[in-house]
Design a protein around this nucleic acid. Structure first.
Lengths: 220, 220
DNA sequence: AATAATTTTTAGATTTACCTAAAAATAAAA
DNA sequence: TTTTATTTTTAGGTAAATCTAAAAATTATT
């Protein structure tokens, strides 16, 4: 049984571990909006509980138990996001903070029933995969929009940035999940990308294109 | 902004204040499963925050602000209970502990949308009234089943005990909310009560009869 | 390889919500 | 109206999660 705080540390370490093998103290501190000294205290505690492997000055990795716990929190977070969007009509940019709280409610029964109520969704409103109750989920094989060449097409299936301003921006442009797109041009000058949608044409910056994930349906 | 613990104290004081005018330290301690010394610490803090009025050795009463806060927590608790029963198919004896956690999620938007999603319910699965978003709710005018005379009839509209064994017991007997009942006999020996239901006859102890609430539809 | 810069850890405090044990106030009983 | 019992508060301490400031280890740079 972990505290609210311990759960947040595990989740943060899990997400950081998707990018780097060994997760550094400073990286955790930045993500958790706290000080490195506090992180050191906590990772000692998590190591004592067998949730992470920790070598002084060398960063941490999740143990099997730690990873399972983290995945379970991610599962809860994403299921609650689906609930908020599908059932309570929240927009995709409004759900993160509330889900951040809801993910800590401790009841296996609750989550299993919620999962069923929602129709066992495979992805959350941002396209991130939802682990099943055994922690299994398909490794998503997305390409960043920025990597597409002129003429390439595909479907928007995710985003790698969850901030409200970014998501609102996409919404305004009509770049929402499930939309079919084709890259019609890439500007030499600033690297901005022109996108053809079924009904219109939009121009997005390199920065935005980096954070849109595409499931490609064949190069042209 | 209150902590999880402060919210629980306010809620406890609110419920105790339904029975006694001045709420005693020991009563709070018993309800919160903590020690009187800890209660004293906390009520000082709540008094400093202007949520309760407190005179040493004389117990506490909620201020207007404190009462509003407490009612808001009660509202959340009861709405979540409706959600769990109506949408996730929990039984009425299984919802209390989970709702106890869910009630602390801080998002006005969430609760308003949940309320709407549930169809603005007026009562929770145990018949307790749900305050609206302004904290208003009808004072329920129930009679305890034990107070009915032989021949009196009415509808089961609430319970004054939320423990799982008690609720399971009622369920087994078919004494659930909305059921029409008539008192057909009261035993002199042990005060147990014989109840006529539409399709059967059941016998309940005095103790059980004390905790069933009836909205009377006229004496016989 | 020595020095500088960065990262991480230790040491010592703080805050919140508890606790125990003892003292003080209030209420009940002789 | 004393004495006794009960209730409540104070005093002093603990554990969790945080902090600042300073020391130690690691990494990068000349």
């Amino acid at each position: 049984m972990q505290s609210y705080t311990e759960e947040n540390y595990l989740k943060t370490i899990y997400h950081l571990a998707e990018k780097t093998i060994n997760v550094q103290t400073n990286a955790i501190a930045e993500q958790m909006q706290t000080k490195p000294a506090s992180v050191t205290d906590m990772i000692k505690k998590l190591a004592d509980k067998g949730l992470i492997d920790y070598i002084k000055y060398q960063g941490v990795t999740l143990t099997e138990t730690g990873k399972n716990t983290a995945i379970d929190i991610v599962r809860k977070h994403r299921l609650w996001e689906v609930f908020l969007v599908d059932k309570l009509n929240f927009k995709w940019d409004e759900v993160h903070d509330v889900a951040e709280e809801l993910e800590h409610i401790k009841s296996v029964e609750l989550i299993e029933r919620l999962d069923e109520f929602l129709g066992f969704p495979k992805a959350d409103p941002h396209g991130d995969p939802i682990p099943d109750k055994n922690g299994r989920f398909a490794k998503t094989q997305f390409i960043k929009l920025i990597e597409l060449k002129v003429g390439d097409s595909g479907t928007i299936t995710g985003v790698s940035q969850h901030s409200s301003p970014f998501l609102k921006h996409l919404e305004k442009l009509g770049l929402t999940l499930g939309k079919q797109i084709q890259v019609s041009d890439v500007t030499d000058f600033d690297g901005s990308v022109e996108i053809r949608l079924s009904d219109k044409q939009v121009n997005i910056s390199r920065e935005v294109a980096k954070h849109i994930l595409i499931s490609s349906n064949g190069k042209n």
